[in-house]
Simulated assay, not measured.
Amino acid sequence: MGKEVSIIVPMYNVEKYIERCLSSLNNQTVESYEVICIDDCSPDGSAEIASRFSNKYPNKFRLYRNVTNFGLGKTRERGISLSEAPYIMFIDSDDYVADNYIETYLAEAKESNAEVVIGGYSRDVDGKITPHYPTNSDWSLISYTIACAKLYKKSFLEDKGIHFSSTRCGEDIFFSSKIFLAEPSYSVLEKYAGYYYYFNRNSITSSAKKDRQLERYIAGIYDELFDDGAFDNAEDRKLHMLEYCYYANMVNALVVYGKGCGKKRMQEKVTFVFNHAATLFKNSLANPLLRSPFIKGESMKRSMGVYLALMLHRHNLDQPFYNLVSKL
């Protein structure tokens, strides 16, 4: 029987976690899949561990090595090009999955014939597991930006030219936006969270908190979307959702990743965000999503955060709030 799913696992500095990840993939309840491990010039022993799996289970695991460090997004793209199955899944190498993970997604894909199958994930923070579930709406394509915990038809990705950003932080925002704009048929596993997202304090996203530059990465992602033609000829509904997600990501960057950065630095960050927003979105006043704290299908926490942040900004009351955040 041919392979039905290709699992793409980029690896970089995950020597502590990669065996758990690959073991969880080896324990799947179906057999019709392949695991494509790609060593992105990792300086540790990640490739050696993956090599043990590919040597012991050559019909299931394949190991490749990048000649230079590509970054997560471009390594995933290489994995797609190497894949031999009609369906694609991504798993980050410090995460792991339930034994029925592939079986659950593949069964839903076959039953629904969807181009994208979307599931939940369970957050693992020092052994404390908290499940998170998507909603059965377009928000699960664009706002629920995780590229993992989803299954994709390879033909859809190729036919629509879906690719990752060259920015090396927040690649999933770009990827999810491209998929959303391509209008795929999709199915949502509303009560399944068999993907275990391990909170790795040394990951790229976590380290962004240390240099406090996440808003710059996000700006680069949306600039690339704009240059890539994502905004061209998009209907108002899509543009409104893109703009809302831009602000949701920027508010998160300011409030979560800006904590303790100091008053002067925070003023610079806030000025940068709203100046950059003005270059991309010309008429935010016409966007109803920015004026409602309750958006059907979207996280209330996110929608409330965007609503309050923009309301304060419109009334020139946001600086005291951000000054407070900068001191936390």
Rank of each mutant, 00 (worst) to 15 (best):
S81C: 02
L63H: 02
M266S: 00
L290F: 11
E298I: 10
M250S: 05
E171D: 12
Y217T: 01
R168T: 11
R302P: 04
I173P: 10
N26S: 06
E268Y: 08
R302C: 00
A47G: 12
R302I: 04
L289S: 04
D44Q: 02
S54M: 03
F156C: 03
S140L: 11
Y12L: 08
K178G: 06
A208V: 06
S299K: 02
V306S: 02
V270L: 03
F231E: 13
M250Q: 11
K282I: 05
N66K: 05
K74W: 14
Y246M: 06
D92N: 07
R168P: 07
C169N: 15
K191P: 02
S42Y: 03
V35P: 02
N200H: 11
A109T: 04
S24E: 10
M1E: 08
L157A: 07
P86R: 06
R265Y: 02
K60L: 15
P131T: 02
F274Y: 12
A208K: 02
V30G: 05
K282T: 10
D159I: 08
L280S: 07
P293W: 01
P43F: 07
N233I: 09
Y17T: 07
M300R: 15
G260S: 09
G2S: 05
K3W: 13
N13K: 11
S207F: 06
F164N: 15
L312A: 10
Y257S: 05
Y195I: 10
N249C: 04
G194S: 04
G119M: 12
F174L: 12
A85W: 11
S299C: 11
R78W: 04
Y186F: 07
L239H: 01
I173K: 13
R76N: 13
I295G: 04
A277Y: 01
I118N: 08
